Simulated scan of single mutants.
Amino acid sequence: MSEVTQAGRDKMVADVKVLISDAEELLKLTAGEASGKLAEVRTRLGERVAAAKVRVVEMEQALVAKTKEAAKATDVYVHENPWKSVGIAAGAGLLIGLLIGRR
């Protein structure tokens, strides 16, 4: 999994957690309001927040599993092809060094 995709997914999970936290706070702040329409909206929002929490946990678990899988595949490749891995790392280091040196 690429770092950009990983970072994007991590940010999305963090943003959803913040959104859920804000919605929970809103529910707590409006707990004393007893009007019919507001109570109905609070109930629906509470159900959706609970469902969103479950989905975020599932997403996090899937993300962790895929990350571990990618790390294990990388580890296996490096152990099976140590010289190729060293060559790739050296080439990447050289390219990064050249790019940094041009600035």
Rank of each mutant, 00 (worst) to 15 (best):
A39E: 11
I88F: 04
A23E: 01
M12V: 08
I20T: 10
K66D: 14
R103T: 04
K72V: 13
V49F: 01
G93K: 07
A92C: 06
L27Y: 13
G93M: 05
T74P: 01
E47D: 14
V86F: 12
E58P: 02
K68V: 01
A73R: 14
A34M: 06
A51C: 01
A65S: 14
R9T: 12
L26W: 08
E25W: 08
V41G: 04
L98C: 05
D22C: 00
K37Y: 02
R55E: 11
A65E: 10
R9V: 09
A14H: 03
R44A: 07
V76Q: 14
K28I: 02
L94N: 02
I88H: 05
V18E: 11
E40I: 08
V56M: 07
G36T: 09
P82H: 06
K53C: 04
S35P: 03
M1D: 06
V56Y: 04
V49Y: 01
P82K: 11
A51E: 06
H79G: 02
A50M: 08
R9E: 15
I88K: 06
A89T: 12
K68T: 04
V41N: 06
L38P: 01
E24A: 00
K37M: 12
G36E: 05
A52E: 08
Y77G: 09
V4M: 07
V18P: 01
T30R: 10
E69K: 15
V18K: 14
A73G: 11
V57W: 01
A39K: 15
V54W: 00
K84L: 04
L27C: 09
A52T: 15
A70W: 09
G91F: 07
K17V: 05
M12T: 04
V4A: 07
A52P: 00
V4W: 07
G93E: 06
V64E: 09
G87F: 12
S21T: 12
M12P: 05
Q61V: 04
A71D: 07
T43W: 04
E3R: 12
R44D: 15
A92R: 13
G46N: 06
K11L: 15
K72R: 11
V78R: 13
K84C: 02
K37F: 01
R102W: 08
G91S: 13
A34N: 04
I20C: 11
L63G: 03
L99A: 15
G93S: 12
G91Q: 13
V16T: 12
A89V: 05
R42C: 14
L26Q: 12
K72S: 07
A89R: 11
R55K: 14
E69H: 13
A39V: 10
E33T: 00
A62W: 01
R44G: 15
A92W: 04
V86W: 07
A31L: 05
V57I: 12
L45N: 08
N81F: 10
E80A: 11
V78H: 00
Y77T: 09
D10L: 13
L26N: 11
M1T: 13
G87T: 11
E40F: 11
R48K: 15
A52M: 08
A65C: 02
R103W: 09
E25C: 05
A50W: 01
R9H: 12
Q6A: 14
D22I: 03
L29T: 05
P82D: 08
K11G: 03
A89D: 09
V16M: 09
S85K: 00
G87V: 02
A90K: 10
A92T: 11
I96S: 07
A31R: 06
S2E: 14
R9A: 07
